[in-house]
Design a protein around this nucleic acid. Structure first.
Lengths: 224, 224
DNA sequence: CTAATAGTGTCTTTCAGACAATATGGG
DNA sequence: CCCATATTGTCTGAAAGACACTATTAG
C-alpha cells in the first residue's frame, strides 16, 4: 500500500457559557503560525503518548490552556479536509463543553465574532446549533449556570438559548416532571421580594433525559 | 513543539439496509493484517491526495469497495485512541449510510453479529442508536426502502426500526403533515385487495425535517 | 397597606392513540 | 355477495399554552 504524508490530527474545544445573559465562547489568541495573533478555539495536537483517546486529549487541552475541568463535555463532530489548515490535510476532532460563568477566560459573544483562525466559525456554529437542539429536550442549559440556581434563573437561560420566551407555569411543570433537580437548603432573595428556592442538578451519569418541551404552538390552523 | 509519530486516520462506513424486515449492515472480510480474515466495516485510509475532505473519502470508499453511491450519508462520530488498532494511535472518522435492499453486499443482521475487527461493534451500535433516535422525528427510514413504496411498507419499516407497532391512522396523519412524499402514478396490488398508492421521497436538499412523533404515552399519571 | 417576584391552579387547545367505518380491488 | 387490504373519520385522554390567582418577603 502506498504511503501518504502524515495527516495533522488535532482536538478543538468549543467552551461555552452565558455572560450577562449572552451565550459566549472561550477564545485564545494564537501565539504561533499559522494564524499567529488571531483568535482561535482552545485546541492542539493529539499527543499519542499522553492521550489514551480523543476525549482524554480534550480534557488535557482544557486543563493546560484553560485550567478547568468542565462538568459537561461531548464530542461534536470532526472537521477534516485539505482546505482548513495551510499546513496540509488536517482533521480536527471537535468537542463542545459547558461551564459556569464564573470560569475565567476570554469570553466572546457567539453572535458577534471577529475573524477567527481556521474554520473555527463553522465549528462554533455547529456547537451552538447542537446546544440549541439539545436544549429543547434536555437539561443541558443548566450547565451554563453556577452550581446552584433558582428556577427563574434557569428559565432565563432556556429562553436565551432557545431564543423565545417560555411560559413560567409550563416550564416549572416540565422541570418538576423531569425530576432532575435537587432542592438545596436555603433561598435566594434580592430586594423586597419573596425569596426563591435554590436548586442544583442531581448527580447523574446520564445526560439527555427527555424534556420534550415543544416549540410554541401556532395560533391558527395551517389549512387541512 | 515536539514531534509525535504519525496518527493513523481512516474512514469507516456503517452501511445499512433492511433485508427481510431485519436491519442489516454491510461487512467485508479483511484481506490483510491487522485482523486479516475477519469481518469489518468497509473503510480505509484517508487519501490526502484524492480526498478533499472526510466525506469525499467516505464516498470514495463506498465507490471502491461497494460500488455504490448511497442516497443518504452522514457523519456519525470519530472513534480515536491507542487501544483500537494494534498498529498504534488511530482515529476512525465513522459515517453511516442508508441504501435500498436491492444493493448487492454481504449483509449481516445487526442483532446477530459475529466477532468483528477493531472496535467495529461499538461503531455499528452507535449507528443503530442514531438511526433509531432520528427515526422518531424524521423520514430517514424511507432511505431503507426502494425508491418507490406504499405507506404500508413505510410503516412496517418504521416499526422495525423503532421496535414497536404504530397506529395506522396516526402514522398516515404524521406522514401527510410532513409533506415529504410525492405520489407516483400507478399503484401496487397483491391478491384480491384494494391496490395501494405508490409514493417516493420528495427531492430535497435537507434531511431531518421534524416529525415529532413522540414515544407512546404512559397510561397512568406519574405522581404529581 | 404596597411593591415585587415566587410559585400554583385552572381553563382551553392541540394532538396522538384507539378504533370504527368506508373504499376498492378480485373472485 | 365474499374477503382482504387501503384509506379515512371520529372520539378521547394527556399534555402544553395561556393566564389569572395566591404566597412571601421588605418596607
Amino acid at each position: 500500500m502506498a504511503m501518504y504524508p502524515p495527516i495533522i490530527v488535532t482536538v478543538d474545544v468549543v467552551l461555552m457559557t452565558l455572560c450577562l445573559d449572552v451565550l459566549c465562547v472561550a477564545l485564545i489568541r494564537r501565539p504561533n503560525a499559522p494564524f499567529a495573533g488571531e483568535l482561535a478555539l482552545p485546541g492542539g495536537y493529539v499527543h499519542a503518548q499522553e492521550d489514551g483517546n480523543a476525549e482524554d486529549a480534550a480534557y488535557r487541552i482544557l486543563r493546560e490552556k484553560m485550567g478547568i475541568k468542565p462538568p459537561y463535555l461531548e464530542q461534536l463532530a470532526t472537521f477534516a479536509g485539505n482546505q482548513r489548515d495551510p499546513r496540509g490535510w488536517s482533521a480536527s476532532i471537535a468537542y463542545f463543553a459547558l461551564v459556569s460563568p464564573t470560569t475565567e477566560a476570554t469570553w466572546q459573544p457567539v453572535n458577534e465574532l471577529q475573524k477567527l483562525a481556521f474554520d473555527h466559525p463553522a465549528i462554533i456554529q455547529a456547537a451552538v446549533d447542537r446546544l440549541r437542539s439539545k436544549s429543547a429536550y434536555s437539561v443541558l442549559p443548566a450547565y451554563l449556570l453556577p452550581e446552584t440556581f433558582t428556577l427563574a434563573e434557569l428559565q432565563k437561560i432556556y429562553e436565551q438559548v432557545l431564543g423565545s420566551p417560555l411560559d413560567k407555569s409550563s416550564f416549572r411543570r416540565k422541570i418538576k416532571e423531569l425530576d432532575l433537580l435537587d432542592q438545596v437548603a436555603g433561598s435566594f432573595q434580592v430586594g423586597n421580594q419573596r425569596p426563591a428556592q435554590i436548586y442544583r442538578l442531581k448527580k447523574m451519569m446520564t445526560f439527555d433525559r427527555t424534556l420534550s418541551q415543544s416549540a410554541p404552538r401556532k395560533t391558527g390552523r395551517s389549512g387541512q
